[in-house]
Amino acid sequence: MINLTVNGQPVTVPDGTTVLQAVRAAGVELPTLCYHEGLAPYGACRLCMVVITAPRHALVASCAYPVEEGMVVETNVPEAATARHLALEFLLSRCPQSDVIREMAAKEGITTSRFGAPPPERADELCVLCGLCVRVCREAIGAAAISFIGRGMERRVGTPFDVQSDACIGCGACAEICPTGAIKMEDQGNKRILHTWHTTVELHTCPQCGRFFVPEPMSFLKEMFPEIEDLWALCPECRQQRAARQWIEQRATSPV
């Protein structure tokens, strides 16, 4: 275990914890955008900046910085607050239409940005380039269907050449993880459409109730899990039904 202080308050956390986790363990609030507990730290949005005064003085992205014994962390000193405010102003100038960003900024007292407004063609931009979608798809799902495209002001996320992705399995994790709701996904009949990725995947029909459920590109799971092969396309409700029926039958033949 590691002992440190956050805003003067002592906390003890397991080895390998990040400063952000220690800060939250101490009950101190800190905004984050590109951080997700289930993915590797990335340190892109700079919202989680804090100042460390011991063992050495540093301004760090807390989500990607490991704790050390005797560390002294300050989240509210001017140096830390200024860094966070700068990050918020950048975000606000990129995505002035995002409610999430506006709310986050307002919480820290930021309502305008010194960096101006986006060009007209990107006035509705919601993507803050946090990279969560790219990372979840590559790191967790292993599909790597989407990536960063372009540089500087042109930087954005998308599928290669902005056409239908053959790698996308239609899981929707990208749309779920996006902090600003920039990824548009919709189910239409037996189609799941990922508008932002110009990608459509087919959904299987549940043979019992006719609802659409399993995306076709997830069929590889059948090979990984032979135990589900014969109930593959069944929706969860129909699987419950099936399990219940089996249980009733099992009890009838061998009473427990």
């Binding site: 979840v136 994790a173 997830m218 589900i228 969860p236 699987r239």
Partner: peptide, 27 residues
């Protein structure tokens, strides 16, 4: 739930339909 990315893979492989995904407040 803090680690969950809502990919629904678990839902797809549970033989008993015992998992569902919903929006909730986590931390």
């Amino acid at each position: 739930q803090r680690l969950c990315i809502a990919c629904r893979l678990c839902m797809m492989v549970c033989p008993f339909g015992a998992i569902h995904v919903a929006t909730t407040e986590v931390a």
